[in-house]
Computed example of a mutant assay.
Amino acid sequence: MPEPIPVDGAAGGQVLRTSLALSALTGKPFTISSIRSNRPNPGLQPQHFTAVKTLAETCHAEIEGAVKESRQLTFKPGKVRPSSLQVNIGSAGSVTLLLQALLPPSLREEVRLRVMGGGDVPFAPPANYFSGVLQPALKAFGVHFEFSLNKRGYYPKGNGAVSFKSVPGRLPLKAVDFTELGQLQSIQCVSHCASLPREVAVNQARAAHKKLEEFDCEWIESIEAAPHSDTIGSGLDLLACFDNGAHLGANALGAKGKPAVTVGEEAAVHLLKSLRSLRPVDVHLADQLIPFMGLAKGTSFFQCAEVSQHLLSSIAVTKQFLDCEISIVGDLGQPGRVTVKGVGFA
């Protein structure tokens, strides 16, 4: 086995997840140091520890340093094998961030996973974003999987559940061109709450709709309310759908003392920013696409609403594992264009 790739994990958990994903798929070991050292609670936290353990099971990896709050970890992957796993993150840790790490290695073999944790939590893509924005974007590469939200889980209790099943496809992946936004056809709104009055979800949706009235398109609204649940919280997810298959997503979450109207307006403002950028890739999707662009055969492009630190970190890690050519035009916090010459991994 080659020497482990040295990875600087100071930037956050995303660096760890991307490293795990590409290591498990390519068979390249890595050692990550200074794990999340720039965060208030540095080192491996429960959700990161769960990601390491899950990926290790998927590819029968040898791991060193996988203990709580560890700041250094070595991961030596074996071969990805078909697997069926049940994972409980044990907190409101994000279920979708765990699945992000699992997606690349699941290109090889069928992986079935049921995950308990947080499906609608801060600083992570909600379950509706995973299925409404990420899933159709990855389909363009030739990545196919089944995903279902079984139960919502909010911070801090969690108790949400999702199911995932990969559909291994033919490698290498196809190159993509996400540079045109197309014509806006509809905006889908899913407003949801648990252990709260249904009016909370209704008021969230009403506020979002009012904020987005300037757009002459179909408004598709869904209200979800679970008055008696073992989790408590609310949120609103928006999905803008275009005639060329592009999707832009935005969301906002409720919090104690935060009015429902504010939640709806907040989600609408996020979507407005993406819509007015006239770019087909929103700020949250951009970094998630990079590993797949690096794996694809040929040159892929996208134009994004904003260059984020997550995007820059994803580029740096992907280049370490795949040695692909990636160029970016645009400053941090501004719209950008990314070009990736993939390695045609098969």
Rank of each mutant, 00 (worst) to 15 (best):
R81K: 15
L99S: 09
L85F: 05
C59N: 05
R71V: 05
R81Q: 14
P77G: 11
P82S: 05
G93F: 01
F75P: 09
T58M: 14
A51G: 03
V52C: 00
T50H: 04
K79F: 04
T50F: 00
T50D: 04
R81Y: 04
E57C: 11
S91K: 10
E69F: 09
S83M: 03
T54P: 02
E69H: 11
K79R: 15
G78S: 13
E64M: 06
G65R: 09
G93S: 09
T96I: 04
I89Q: 02
V80E: 08
V80T: 15
F75G: 12
A51M: 06
I63R: 11
T54Y: 00
G90V: 07
A66H: 11
L55E: 03
P82T: 12
A92Y: 06
V52H: 01
A92N: 03
Q100N: 13
L99C: 05
L73H: 11
T58R: 11
S83G: 14
T50S: 14
S94M: 02
I89E: 02
S84C: 08
E62G: 14
P77M: 03
E62Y: 11
E57V: 00
E62Q: 15
L85I: 06
V67Q: 10
H60I: 08
H60L: 08
G93A: 08
Q86C: 09
S83E: 06
N88M: 02
T96P: 02
G78Q: 12
V52N: 01
C59K: 08
Q86V: 15
L98K: 14
V87F: 05
K53N: 12
L97S: 12
A92E: 01
G65V: 07
P82F: 03
R71N: 05
L73Y: 03
E62M: 12
A56P: 08
E62R: 15
K53C: 04
P77D: 09
S83C: 13
